[in-house]
Structure formats: C-alpha cells, structure tokens
C-alpha cells in the first residue's frame, strides 16, 4: 500500500508496523493546523478530525459506501488538545488502515471507536497541562528575561532599550513555544500511526509529567528572579517603595495560592486604590 514506507522505520519503536510516507505525513500535518477550524458545541473538533484523516481515508477505502461509512464514523463527537490531536489522528489512521486490510467487522469498528474516544480526554489531560498550563507561561517567562536583560544592560530606569529588544523577546517566546509544539504535532502523527492500538501504553513511556515538573520549576525560579528584578528596577527606588511592593506582591501570591481568581484580585486592588485615594486626599 502506498501509505507504507519501510525505509523510514524507526527501530526505537515497539511496533513493527511501517510508518507513514513523508508526503502523507506532510499532508496530514498541514491539515492539523485546521484541527479546530469548525469547533462547535455539538461535536467539538469532529470536522477538524475528519479533515486531518481524509487523505488516509480516501486512500484506504476504495468503494463509495466504505468511504461514506468511514466519514460518518469520524463526524461523531471528538475533543482533545489541538497539538496532541496528532497522536489521535495518527493512531486512528493506522486502525482505519488495519480495518481496510483485515476487513470491517463490528468488533473492529467498536475497537476503533473505543480507542479514539478514550484517547481524546487522555491526550487533552496531558496537552492542557503541558501546553496551556506550563509551556505558555514558561515562554512568557523567557520573554520577560530577554526584556529584563535589555533594561539591565542598556541603562537604568529612565533609559529606554532599543526597539530590536522587543522583537528579540517575542521571537524567543514564539520559537520556544512553537519549536516544541510543531515537534509534538509532527512526531505525534508518526508515533500515533506506528503505535496504533497500543498508543495508550506507549504514551506512558514519554515522561510528560517530568517535563512539566521541570519546566514549572525553571519557570518558577525565572518568575521570582524576574519579578524581583522588576520590582527593584522599576519600583524600588527607595527602601519604603520596595518593601511596599514586595509586601503587596507577597499578599497577592498568597491570595492566588488560595485559588482567588485574577478578576477578583483586580477588583480588590482597585477597591483598595479607591479607599487609599479617599483617605489620602
């Protein structure tokens, strides 16, 4: 079958199933960028999922009836984290191909649907914590470091750094985030395809939690350093101002730790500002 390319077998993987061809992987990869393009409350990412899978479906199913049934299967509800969706697309492509090779039975279709529906929430759990909950704030922390570097090296408080530093900061943010995001999207397809039904077990071998913990630790330290730098550089011109700023930040961090929402903190701070304004007029 033209989807197979034995020269690109990865010996590190447990499965003996040959990987996707580079052309097919590239086509699906580009389509994964539209994974959420028709996100809707009724069936969430179903259209995006079918769109990603279409090159495989149209290749493996030869008759119109089979193709229609396959399309209808994937127009059912599906939702996961968009980057991690690649794993689900890859694994489902493999299962569809197996079904086409071995013949469609009720059991095969049940397995296919079961694997796909189990993968959605499992991948979302990993992806939400890794991308939205960790990598995004981490990249913002890196950006703050670059900008902080600019303010430190190019002058003191009143000196404005060169405009290029703004670009450098956003460049670092985008590269740090997207390099990993694109890698996951690309490798997710080939690994998902190779692993097929055993994807659940194989995913456990990737140390997601260790990556998240490490990134968080680094980000936390970066946050404390950058925050201290910011408070000292921009607000700590006198000892009193610095101690005030540190106390308020400490209080806010404590409130956040007690699960206070950011908008509540905004309300509290503006309320406090109002009272301060009334009593210091």
């Amino acid at each position: 079958m033209s989807l197979l390319n034995k020269s690109r077998m990865n010996p590190g993987l447990t499965s003996q199933f040959p990987p996707l061809t580079l052309g097919m992987q590239g086509r699906i990869f580009l389509r994964t960028l539209c994974f959420q393009s028709v996100w809707n409350f009724e069936r969430m990412q179903n259209v995006g999922f079918l769109f990603c899978l279409w090159p495989v479906l149209s290749k493996v199913w030869s008759t119109k009836t089979e193709l229609r049934e396959a399309a209808e299967r994937h127009l059912e509800h599906f939702n996961t984290q968009p980057y991690m969706g690649s794993f689900a697309v890859g694994a489902t492509a493999r299962l569809e191909q197996q079904a086409a090779q071995t013949g469609v039975t009720a059991k095969t279709l049940h397995r296919l649907n079961q694997v796909k529906q189990t993968l959605g929430p499992a991948l979302a759990g990993i992806g939400d914590a890794l991308f939205w909950g960790t990598l995004r704030p981490f990249s913002a922390g890196l950006l703050l470091c670059v900008w902080g570097l600019a303010w430190r090296t190019e002058g003191k408080v009143a000196t404005i750094p060169a405009e290029g530093w703004v670009l450098a900061g956003i460049g670092v943010y985008l590269v740090a985030y997207n390099a990993f995001g694109l890698w996951v999207r690309w490798k997710g397809l080939s690994w998902g395809y190779q692993w097929g039904e055993s994807i659940g077990t194989e995913l456990l071998r990737i140390p997601w939690q260790r990556w998240i913990r490490r990134l968080r630790k680094i980000g936390f330290v970066v946050g404390i350093l950058a925050g201290t730098w910011w408070l000292v550089n921009l607000h700590g011109r006198s000892g009193i101002e610095l101690s005030q700023a540190l106390s308020i930040t400490f209080l806010l961090v404590c409130l956040k730790w007690r699960e206070w929402r950011t908008q509540t903190l905004l309300g509290v701070m503006f309320g406090g500002a109002f009272l301060l304004q009334v009593f210091t007029r």
Binding site: G141, R216, G227, V253, K256, W257, L265
Partner: peptide, 10 residues
Amino acid sequence: LATFLYAMRP
C-alpha cells in the same frame, strides 16, 4: 506577577 508565579507553582 502573582498570576505568573501561581501558574508556574511546583
């Protein structure tokens, strides 16, 4: 800053 530290909390 408090939100950032909370988001990155170990």
